[in-house]
Design a protein around this nucleic acid. Structure first.
Length: 562
RNA sequence: UGGGGCGUCGUCAAGCGGUAAGACACAGGAUUUUGGUUCCUGCAUUCGGAGGUUCGAAUCCUCCCGCCCCAGCCA
């Protein structure tokens, strides 16, 4: 049964919302997904997207897409575009509710002025090092800035001049006047505006001062009428500050912040810093490298939106630190593709087979079902002829007993075709390498098993050499060899999997695959799911990416050895 | 170390005082022209630990232990 639903069982956030609704604390639900456009979305973001948009849909509310673009360094239109593309691809729609924190700069400035007027903020001339020093430590309270008790007038004047560009970068900041002795360091007069002469990708040079996250985020939520502001656990310490700003500046309905545990995935890394490093150092080919846990990477790899949604649903939402096994993701991908991907035959590592008793000039068109359990997906025709290719792995000269494939003297079923028997393995006299198999076929076995009752245990895939389509196939595996690549000193380079990408060329595909279009997904029978690469495929030579292998119980048996 | 948060199967995760859901993984078996799929079966006498309250505790109380987050003019 495919778990392609997004049916969201309940979780502690939905419980809170249910309760808020019951108490009439809110009448309709409004959430938001607030990425900073300084990188590509990854599977962790996808969890948040599914959560926020999923809740909005479930409660007939709204979910805003808001670019949290309050720090111009690193932010760009490229990222805005990729974020929007990824969210749409995941299957969510913000309709006309696209917002930018940068659109609120004027409004936020007014909020800051209001804070100053109420004696709740001041312009501080300590430099960054001094501010850190004055902040104190976990165990010692901070000290008050010497600039803390300026008059409202002076603060108003100074803040206006900060905006006007009269002071150099870093020379002054606006700080909230809260409590330098607070046990919560976040509350020790946090900086809310800094001077930064950096062009903003949307506001250009209009501003030289930019609001900080803690100030901008909660007020943006309030401006947009967000009811439930869902974020990750590391912001839990910031919640008192979130509430402080909102209480000081917002009357009426106030948004509420709820934190959940961010996703960690085994054998991969979701840190923005590391992802950037992988791209910059050329360890991967780009943000959309099929090995990347980015939405763009997974899309190119061939993962489906439904599979990713199912994954986000099945892992749940809670506050426990977690490390979700990547096998859960792979299961969701297989589950979806098993149901929807048409079957085809492809030989990745070709070994030539001559059917000695099959006429040279004969070609049969054999009918093959596109899906074993779903006849509605139809059939296609595959050409059979005297010279075929089979998978190298499907022949062993001296096989163990449980090896149900080709070996000298052994019989095997060719999928959708005849039973053949291996008569001889032809070797290269120089290397001893098997270059060709000489086989015979049993003409009576097309429709069923041999009439004499011989049991044929093995079934292998094949393609007709003459009709085959040559292609490049890229076989991907996990990027890292250990479950937690950042464990220890955080140096992941020693854990990189050298075999995370194997390029196989030429591979031979059955004729029908000549029509495959970019992005199409197939199951190559007995091998796995494969997707036409939309960047590197050419008319002459298609490129397929392996999405995920099939479960392979033979691998387990073989690994045990016998 | 001060503050904030979290500890339920190998991994996620339900559970909200009435006697431990489900998923992945793993292990058996059945069916199978994919060693795939599907279908059965098994997999926490116990919930970080120790006390206590109660007829009854993973759920309430006390103490202890462990892990994560916070000292950016990042988000």
């Amino acid at each position: 049964m495919a778990t392609t639903t997004t049916a969201s069982s309940s979780d502690f956030i939905r419980d809170i919302i249910d309760d808020d609704l019951r108490r009439c604390a809110v009448s309709t639900v409004a959430t938001r997904f607030p990425p900073e456009p300084n990188g590509y979305l990854h599977i962790g973001h996808a969890k948040s997207v599914c959560l926020n948009f999923g809740i909005a849909a479930q409660y007939s509310g709204v979910c805003n897409l808001r670019m949290d673009d309050t720090d111009p360094s690193g932010e760009s239109l490229e990222f805005v575009d990729s974020i929007m593309k990824d969210i749409r691809w995941l299957g969510f729609d913000w309709r006309d509710r696209l917002f930018y924190a940068s659109d609120y700069f004027e409004k936020l400035y007014e909020f800051a002025v209001e804070l100053i007027k109420n004696g709740d903020a001041y312009v501080c001339e300590l430099n960054a090092d001094q501010i850190r020093e004055y902040r104190g430590t976990f165990t010692e309270p901070g000290r008050q800035s010497p600039w803390r008790s300026r008059s409202v007038e002076e603060n108003l004047d100074l803040f206006a001049r900060m905006r006007a560009g009269e002071f150099p970068d870093g020379s002054r900041v606006l700080r909230a006047k809260i409590d330098m002795a607070s046990p919560n360091i976040v509350m020790r007069d946090p900086v809310i505006y800094r001077i930064k002469r950096q062009p903003h990708y949307r506001t250009g040079m209009d501003w030289v001062i930019y609001p900080m996250y803690d100030f901008a985020h909660c007020l943006s939520d309030a401006i947009e009428g967000i009811t439930h502001s869902i974020c990750t656990l590391e912001f839990e310490n910031n919640r008192p500050l979130y509430d402080w700003f909102v209480e000081k500046l917002i009357q009426g309905k106030r948004p509420r912040q709820i934190e959940f545990a961010r996703l960690n995935l085994s054998y991969t890394v979701l840190s923005k810093r590391v992802l950037i490093e992988l791209v910059r150092r050329g360890i991967v080919s780009g943000w959309d490298d099929p090995r990347m846990p980015t939405v763009a990477g997974m899309r190119r790899r061939g993962y489906t939106p439904a599979a990713i949604r199912a994954f986000c649903s099945v892992i749940g939402v809670a506050k426990n630190d977690n490390l979700v096994d990547v096998s859960v993701l792979e299961h969701c991908v297989r589950d979806d593709l098993n149901e929807h991907a048409p079957r085809a035959m492809a030989v990745l590592r070709p070994l030539k087979v001559i059917i000695e008793n099959y006429p040279e000039d004969r070609v049969e068109e054999l009918e093959a079902p596109n899906h074993p359990r779903n006849p509605e997906m139809g059939t296609r025709t595959v050409p059979f002829s005297r010279v075929l290719y089979v998978e190298c792995d499907d022949f062993m000269e001296d096989p163990p007993k449980k090896f149900h494939r080709l070996a000298p003297g052994r019989e095997v079923r060719l999928r959708n075709a005849y039973v053949i028997q291996c008569r001889e393995a032809v070797k290269d006299p120089a290397t001893g390498e098997v270059t060709e198999l000489r086989c015979t076929y049993d003409p009576d076995t097309l429709e069923g098993p041999p009439s004499d009752g011989r049991k044929i245990k093995g079934v292998i895939h094949w393609v007709s050499a003459e009709h085959a389509v040559a292609a490049e196939v890229r076989v991907y595996d996990r990027l890292f060899m250990v479950p937690e690549p950042l464990d220890g000193d955080g140096d992941f380079t020693g854990h990189l999997n050298p075999d995370s990408r194997k390029i196989l060329n030429p591979c031979f595909l059955e004729r029908s695959l000549a029509d495959a279009a970019a992005g199409d997904r197939y199951q190559f029978e007995r091998l796995g799911y494969f997707c036409v690469d939309d960047r590197d495929s050419t008319e002459k030579r298609p490129v397929f990416n392996r999405v995920v292998s099939l479960r392979d119980s033979w691998e387990k048996i073989a690994a045990r050895g016998d």
